[in-house]
Amino acid sequence: MDQFIDQLSLSFEDTFSPTQYIAYILLCAGLLFLLAVVYRRFGQSISNRAQLSKVLMIVGLTTFIIISIVKSSLALSLGLVGALSIVRFRTAIKEPEELGYFFMAIAIGLGMGANQLFPTLIGFIILMLIVIIQHKGGDSSITQNILVDMPCEADQRAVVIKNITDAISANTRQLDVKRIKHGENNIAINYLVKVKSFDNLNSINEKLVAIHSKVDVTFIDNSL
């Protein structure tokens, strides 16, 4: 019975080393920073990669802190299971690539929090090499925000939206409608698209002008 109680108690006094903790959390932050750089440079996600890369570092470091705390106590480990059972994500992850990078960040936090330096480093290096090799072997793409403002009568909105979307989607590899705003005599749509080359952007502009000569088209770079 006494042995079981001892297992439930904290043991930071015997095992915790401030110097080692600081060294490992700095190493963890360094690996997460490299992961964020790789994601921004080689990621294919159509979402804002700069914003998500910041979240990766927060997730990884939070995982590190949690694991470094609960690893020395069975009671805290059981409490963590209960706490995580009530967590709910309000925003769904839309792209599998984003989920993969989140798992990488969590794995780094788990490994470094458990003081598994070499397995974490080896796994991280192999994963980054795989990501870079896959990127080099694939086609490069351009991510753009397209803002379209076109004159439109109220009874023609549905037809105009379809024509605009068809003209853009025919020249893109991936398309996401971000915002649609209806004006009194116009319609404004914001698309986030991924195209193979700048020639596709020229084709999109020409097709939109063909729909209406007074269309206003704005291309905004979203590569970061």
Rank of each mutant, 00 (worst) to 15 (best):
F4T: 09
F12M: 05
F16C: 02
C28L: 04
A29P: 03
G30E: 10
A36Y: 03
Y39V: 06
R40F: 03
R40K: 09
R40Q: 13
S47Y: 06
S47I: 09
V55E: 10
L56Y: 12
I58M: 13
G60N: 12
F64K: 09
F64V: 04
I65H: 00
I66S: 06
I66Q: 03
L76F: 14
L76W: 14
S77R: 01
G79R: 08
L80K: 03
A83K: 00
V87T: 07
V87E: 06
T91V: 11
I106M: 12
I108K: 05
M112L: 13
L121E: 02
I125K: 01
L127F: 11
L129F: 15
I133Q: 09
I133V: 15
S141W: 01
M150H: 09
E153Q: 13
D155K: 13
R157V: 11
V160R: 09
I161K: 13
T165W: 01
D166A: 14
A167F: 04
S169F: 09
S169H: 08
A170G: 04
T172V: 11
D176W: 07
N186H: 14
I189W: 05
K194E: 15
V195N: 05
S197E: 11
N200E: 15
N200D: 15
A210Y: 07
D221W: 01
